[in-house]
Write a protein that binds this DNA or RNA. Structure first.
Length: 301
DNA sequence: CTATCCACCTGGCGGC
DNA sequence: TGCCGCCAGGTGGATA
């Protein structure tokens, strides 16, 4: 039975519906965050928030004063995304900034709403009797408030680089962002002000696909290589997004649980395994700036 | 200014 | 079986 989320909610078919997945190797990077946004969109847009329940004083940062109070009774106009942030636009000009951190996920509860568990920090209850529950065991996520006017200059968003899936992003944008950077290309791509939305997984995957060693210095990447890298970043992200999208649209099980993203990683977490491109080298795992990097020493140079 | 390092947090896993 | 300690990750702020 394949149905969209909106349909399932309308039919009150969904008991428990996990939008994001508690899968060890699926930290929320751009594709996962975008998938969550797309999953929430049909159930939240145009709905009034009848109540907002906040169960602790803060996550990575404190909740704003009167967070719940300011949102209660307001209508959600639409959901957008900037880098790994989900933006919930409220009629009247407020905007809720949501970051899933490392372990944050959303659950849509359409009936038989269970008692909140240990890490269920926030509930958004809407006029269509749906509860969207935010759970985040590690509490690296955050929620805060700003306004439409303050969005561009908000501390969390103002220094974020271009979105790799946006139309205005291309190899020239990326090349510009790498000029003079004396860090490795791996570290530069992980930096959100170079490019928005890549995390540890997709940086390794993009570099593998483009055949560029993660150890190269950012400023040493040639124009031709940046062009290839740009193409590969987009491909990797779009493929992950498609996998997420198919999870949302096609893999709804009768019990309402979402199908898992497929892990088609070529190098990430594949340390010591034989490279499936050259079939000769073993994937190396190294540390760069305290973060693990996976790459093929033959395919990437 | 840029680069590096650390704190934040908890579940999961390896080792004993 | 149980417990201990380490590790993973994204980000901002402190430090060099």
């Amino acid at each position: 039975m394949d149905r969209t989320i909106a349909e399932l909610v309308r039919l009150r078919y969904v008991n428990l519906y996990c939008i994001n997945i508690k899968c060890k190797r699926n930290m929320p990077e751009l594709p996962e965050v975008e998938t969550v946004r797309r999953g929430l969109q049909p159930v939240l847009e145009g709905q009034k928030l009848t109540s907002v329940v906040v169960r602790r004083s803060g996550l990575r940062i404190p909740f704003p004063k009167d967070f719940a109070k300011k949102l209660t009774g307001k209508t959600i106009s639409h959901l957008t995304r900037r880098a790994k942030y989900i933006l919930m636009h409220i009629e009247g000009g407020d905007v809720v900034i949501i970051h899933l951190g490392m372990s944050g996920h959303m659950t849509i509860l359409a009936k038989n709403i269970p008692k909140p568990g240990k890490h269920d920090h926030v509930d958004f209850c809407t006029s269509n009797a749906v509860t969207v529950r935010f759970n985040d065991p590690r509490r690296f996520g955050l929620m805060t408030l700003t306004t439409e006017k303050g969005l561009e200059t908000h501390k969390l968003l103002k220094n974020i680089g271009p979105d790799p899936l946006a139309n205005n992003f291309n190899h020239i944008t990326l090349a510009d962002a790498l000029v003079g950077r004396k860090v490795s290309i791996k570290v530069a791509l992980l930096d959100q002000k170079t490019i928005a939305g890549l995390g540890n997984i997709y940086v390794s995957e993009s570099l593998f696909r483009s055949g560029i060693s993660p150890l190269r210095l950012a400023h040493s990447i040639s124009g031709v290589e940046v062009e290839e890298l740009t193409k590969c970043i987009r491909e990797v992200l779009i493929e992950a997004l498609d996998a997420g999208g198919s999870s949302l649209n096609d893999h709804v099980k009768p019990d309402g649980k979402l199908g898992y993203f497929q892990n088609n990683f070529k190098v990430y977490s594949k340390g010591d395994e034989t490279c499936n491109r050259c079939l000769r080298a073993r994937i190396k795992k190294i540390k760069q700036s305290g973060r693990s990097t996976f790459y093929c020493p033959i395919c990437q140079s």
